[in-house]
Amino acid sequence: MIELMGIYALWYREFKVFLRERSRVVASIINPVLWLLIFGGGLGANVAIKGVNYQAFIYPGILAQAVLFSSVFFGVYIVWDKKIDFLKEVLIAPVSRTSIFIGKVIGGTTDSLLQASILLLIGLLLSQGFIPGLHLTIYSSLLALAVLFITTIGFVSLGLILGSQMESMEGFQMIISFLVFPLFFLSGALFPIDNLPSWLTPFTFLNPLTYTVDALRNVILGISQFGLLYDIGMISVFSFIAILIGTYAFEKMKV
């Protein structure tokens, strides 16, 4: 009982923070939209991939990117709770560290999915003839949200694992350069992965975001490389492992 209320307490805090840090939320919406409109529009004028208009082709990739960034950053931001003594205040409560981890994951997942929902609403709007070939429906949006739900659990956990081991934000830039961007570029979000040099292939196959992008493209555009079941299986395995490691990392986390 106390564990459940503890999880709820952590979620409550993250949700309040989300509602109040408007500028962060706005930025996290504007960025993907700029990618889509400017990058996609600029390049897309004379490119079609797999018979799909380029902007429509990268829309699922941009959704995945937005969720990747917001999830990992959310997790890593736990360093700020550490920097002030807020984290100690949470850890000293009679709530298990597993519950604290779960509360954080649910908080971050809520965050990312709310952002994704806004991007999906924008997508529904853009489907009204603004982006040729994009025919997002409410049904496919909900399927996309389900895919993103499993994805975000994994990436929030990954962020929390990293954040729980860091003592300052010093490593943050490294995480962006050596983890987040490679995950993004090697996921097929912006171009089909078979266009990449073959020595990069193993990395794309190990990249969980590859399967998210593929699954999203499947439900939104009807094109797929691996098939929905395989994609969801791979994402689930990733998220499950991330949760396990995250729980362990929180158990061992020093304050």
């Binding site: 009982m1 106390i2 503890g6 307490a9 409550y12 205040e89 409560a93």
Partner: peptide
């Protein structure tokens, strides 16, 4: 809200 959060963490 800080107080409420704390109260919840203590069940």
């Amino acid at each position: 809200e800080n107080l409420k959060l704390h109260g919840m963490l203590y069940g």
